[in-house]
Design a protein around this nucleic acid. Structure first.
Length: 566
RNA sequence: UGGGGUGUAGCCAAGCGGUAAGGCACGAGACUUUGACUCUCGCAUGCGUAGGUUCAAAUCCUGCCACCCCAGCCA
């Protein structure tokens, strides 16, 4: 449990007077002003996920903001699970969230749980009752809902609103002791049933909850609602700035009402920012869950998903994700971002760290008719780095090229192989196509080439050809499985934005979102591991998938190379 | 319809009374043993809209329009 003796000593690291920090967004502007005005003399944030689902790309902005701002201002950020609803939550998610945050490279100061504060919340609730700010209401959920009024008509006050403090205290104690069933009674804040802000119409701040809780079991029978526990926990923990999504904007008056009446020393400030969506990305915990349940994807780490683990399995690096989110900025208008923007940051990082390897996804056999034996050629591992290492590869008579790199009749501006055309085989020789075989359907089955022995890579060969293609030696290659990933959702239905009720059912699943290629060939002497990233020359960026076995390596294509114009 | 929030290019986004940053996308060109990368150039007489204030307005004022959020004992 949380050590309350320390709860007033949270302002450990403070921004020193001499530091001149510049605000990078409106939230930091607010923080800077608070510091200048001495409203706070330090900054503390919190990352408050509810353990009811896996983290996805939409959560990253909140994570970056909370952990990032704490770091920038020399403060701390605690991970605090908002675990006040056992009907939705589980330990599985608790564990997964920590794993994902770590993977992103962030460090929390302490881990707390909203349930840690239940005793304190309860004590404060009693104070609210004693001050006449809260009352036990016997209305059923249906009755309560009706009495709340509508957007345009005020609510009506509960007949239980003016119970005596003593009766409220006794009833609340009864709720706590399990004397009533869920829904039978609740504790409500006494604010204003006529408020134009629905959240201020005597909101429920405690309800009876008998489900088993992943952390505290059945020890508590009453649970504070978010609107009551969150502001309190922020203050108790020493949070100065409580950064949250736009849906809580309307709750801010309630947040402040709770804070101001709590009697707590620290008064936290809630700041809301807008959500980030990606066109065609299915976000939203319940939508993702449905995809998994319906078997539309293989699990929460399906590489087509925008969950943190999905992206991770796909091969996206944490910094790409962070750079992307940072580049979207922070504003108060919801952003629906084009996937191309995200992809740019994925490629940007992969380009600089990926080892270059030759792999043929869709093999077409080539025979070099005038070549015998085998010969060493040199290939650069990291040509994007000046200090790249090199490796030796074998050039042989029989090899494979990409089927799409040969055309019987070349279209205009075609730069690769065609009858009588010349092309360079990457790192090796310039070859000329001197013929090909085809089956009775007209499919090319083998291409015959002659190599020009004066054109070896690295020699001072002056001959130039328009195209360079990748290849793999038949003898020095091995078979791999490659998974090509594409948008899970068909483009036509991609306009549907997360947040809309009908979302998942309106999406059309793209049948080609996962294409498995079983007969790909790759250089046999390169060693692969799970931590590294690879560029299969001209074919995109790949990473090893967890489904790999000793017999067969499985690669996911994280993303294609940018497609040039031709 | 009440309340809250938001509208700057195809997508994000700076801008905070002095004459529209930047990124992505897109287009043109250079380079290239990856049609990648890199580089160069281009890309809003215009800031949701209509008025008003001002020497000067995306910035201030007023009206209107559009979109998002709120009527869980969810968060």
């Amino acid at each position: 449990m949380f050590d309350w003796s320390n709860c007033d000593s949270y302002n450990v690291i403070c921004v020193s007077e001499g530091d001149k920090l510049e605000a990078e967004n409106f939230i930091e502007e607010i923080i800077l002003k608070d510091l200048e005005n001495k409203r706070f003399d330090c900054v503390q944030t919190r990352h408050p996920p509810e353990p009811s689902g896996y983290l996805h790309i939409g959560h990253v902005r909140n994570i970056i903001l909370n952990y990032g701002i704490a770091e920038k201002f020399g403060g701390v950020c605690n991970l605090r699970y908002d675990d006040t609803n056992p009907t939705k939550e589980s330990q599985e998610f608790v564990d997964a969230i920590q794993e994902d945050v770590k993977w992103l490279g962030y460090h929390w100061n302490q881990i707390h749980y909203a349930t840690d504060y239940f005793q304190k919340n309860y004590e404060i609730a009693i104070e609210f009752i004693k001050k006449g700010l809260a009352y036990v209401c016997d209305l059923s959920p249906e009755e309560l809902s009706k009495s709340r009024g509508t957007l345009t008509t005020p609510g009506v006050e509960s007949p239980y609103r003016n119970r005596t403090i003593e009766e409220n205290l006794r009833l609340f104690e009864g709720m706590k002791n399990g004397e009533f069933k869920p829904g039978e009674r609740c504790l409500r804040a006494k604010i204003d049933m006529a408020s134009p802000n629905m959240n201020m119409r005597d909101p429920v701040i405690y309800r009876i909850q008998t489900n088993h809780h992943q952390r505290i079991g059945n020890s508590w029978k009453i649970y504070p609602s978010y609107d009551f526990s969150h502001p309190l926990d922020d203050c108790l923990e020493g949070v100065t700035h409580s950064i949250c999504g736009p849906e809580f904007e309307d709750h801010r008056p309630l947040y402040n009402w709770v804070v101001e009446n709590s009697g707590l020393k620290n008064h936290s400030r809630q700041i809301e920012y807008a959500n980030l969506y990606i066109k065609g990305a299915i976000l939203g915990k319940r939508f993702i869950k449905k995809l998994v349940q319906d078997g539309k994807v293989s699990g929460f780490d399906d590489p087509r998903l925008y969950t943190i683990r999905g992206l991770r399995r796909r091969g996206v690096l944490p910094n790409s994700l962070k750079n992307f989110v940072k580049a979207t900025g922070v504003s108060k208008s919801n952003a629906l971002i084009e996937p191309a923007f995200f992809e740019h940051f994925v490629r940007d990082e992969l380009n600089s760290v990926s080892k270059r390897v030759m792999a043929v996804l869709n093999p077409l056999k080539v025979i070099i008719t005038n070549f015998e034996g085998e010969e060493d050629v040199l290939l650069e591992d990291y040509p994007q780095n000046e200090t790249t290492t090199q490796r030796v590869y074998k050039f042989t008579k029989e090899l494979y090229i990409e089927r799409t790199d040969f055309e019987k009749v070349p279209p205009p501006k075609f730069k690769r192989l065609f009858p009588n055309g010349e092309v360079r085989l990457k790192g090796a020789y310039i070859v000329k196509c001197v013929g090909f075989d085809e089956d009775k359907d007209g499919n090319v089955t083998c291409v015959y080439c002659e190599y020009d022995k004066n054109t070896k890579s690295g020699s001072d060969c002056t001959k130039k050809v328009k195209g360079t293609i990748h290849w793999v030696s038949e003898k020095y290659s091995k078979k791999i499985e490659v998974r090509l990933l594409d948008n899970l959702v068909e483009e036509e239905s991609a306009d549907v934005v997360e947040g809309q009720e009908h979302a998942v059912d309106d999406y059309n699943i793209n049948p080609n979102s996962l294409v498995i290629l079983n007969n790909c060939l790759i250089e046999s002497d390169v060693e692969f591991n799970f931590d590294d990233r690879y560029q299969f020359l001209r074919m995109g960026y790949f990473c090893l998938d967890k489904d790999s076995t000793n017999e067969k390596l499985v690669f996911n294509r994280t993303i294609t190379l940018k497609e040039g114009k031709f």
